[in-house]
């Protein structure tokens, strides 16, 4: 038999651990840990979502490079989150195109360079049409061709109606926040991301407990 005082101490310890774990754990809006998408970055390297991002928070936006207005703001916002954070740590930043037909790795590289983002930690991602379609469906990004026209040199130009999104995904591939991509003030994303980075110890601790 345990002495009452020892039992009380043990009970208190278990209670505190439970309370700590509950307060730290975030249920998330979605969980991407059970999916696997093979994408290609602007350098032609294969990047697997979410496997290659696990262990670090991820800020992910969705764009197509023939959109000069909304998508350029999504791109700049993702860049500004990194630039304006005091300590981004190992946070990863990705922009995924939903126009893989035109947005090849080479095009994405030129686009990234124009925004001075063709450098770590930024990745601009594409894939084959089927993969991108499945990926966008999984992350709830909606797209629909709007109108098209033929240019003088015979090329077909088309535009796309699309969701306006930036996602914040935690180190365990859980969706934590879903922002309006072009108009959300960057400081809001930074605040959420900093909380996520601070809570990393909590998450690691709770993960160890659950495992």
């Amino acid at each position: 038999m345990l002495p009452f005082q020892t039992f009380l101490k043990l009970f208190l310890l278990i209670f505190l651990v439970c309370a700590f774990t509950i307060s730290c754990s975030s249920p998330g809006l979605d969980d991407y840990s059970d999916v696997r998408f093979e994408l290609t970055n602007q350098n032609g390297e294969t990047v697997v979502f979410p496997d290659d991002f696990e262990g670090s928070p991820l800020v992910m936006g969705f764009i197509y490079t023939n959109c000069p207005d909304i998508c350029s703001f999504i791109t700049v916002n993702v860049g500004k989150v990194y630039e304006e954070m005091e300590n981004p740590g190992d946070t990863q930043f990705a922009l995924v195109t939903f126009d893989p037909e035109r947005d090849t790795p080479e095009v994405l590289k030129q686009y990234a360079a124009a925004f001075e983002m063709d450098k770590p930690p930024f990745q601009f991602l594409t894939a084959d049409t089927e993969t991108i379609s499945a990926f966008m469906e999984r992350v709830s990004v909606r797209t629909q061709e709007s109108y098209s026209r033929d240019s003088e040199d015979g090329d077909r130009m088309y535009f796309i109606n699309h969701s306006d999104k930036i996602l914040l995904i935690d180190q365990r591939s859980r969706l934590i926040f879903d922002y309006g991509g072009s108009m959300t003030p960057v400081n809001i994303i930074i605040e959420d991301l900093e909380k996520l980075l601070k809570n990393r110890f909590c998450s690691l601790f709770s993960c160890l407990l659950y495992c």
């Binding site: 207005d69 909304i70 909606r142 709007s146 109108y147 109606n161 969701s163």
Partner: peptide
């Protein structure tokens, strides 16, 4: 630019943003 037009971005109201001339 080879082609210049006046466009407007608009909120379609169905969780999508659109662009039109």
């Amino acid at each position: 630019a080879g082609l210049v037009e006046l466009h407007e971005t608009y909120d379609r109201g169905d969780d999508m943003m659109g662009m039109r001339e």
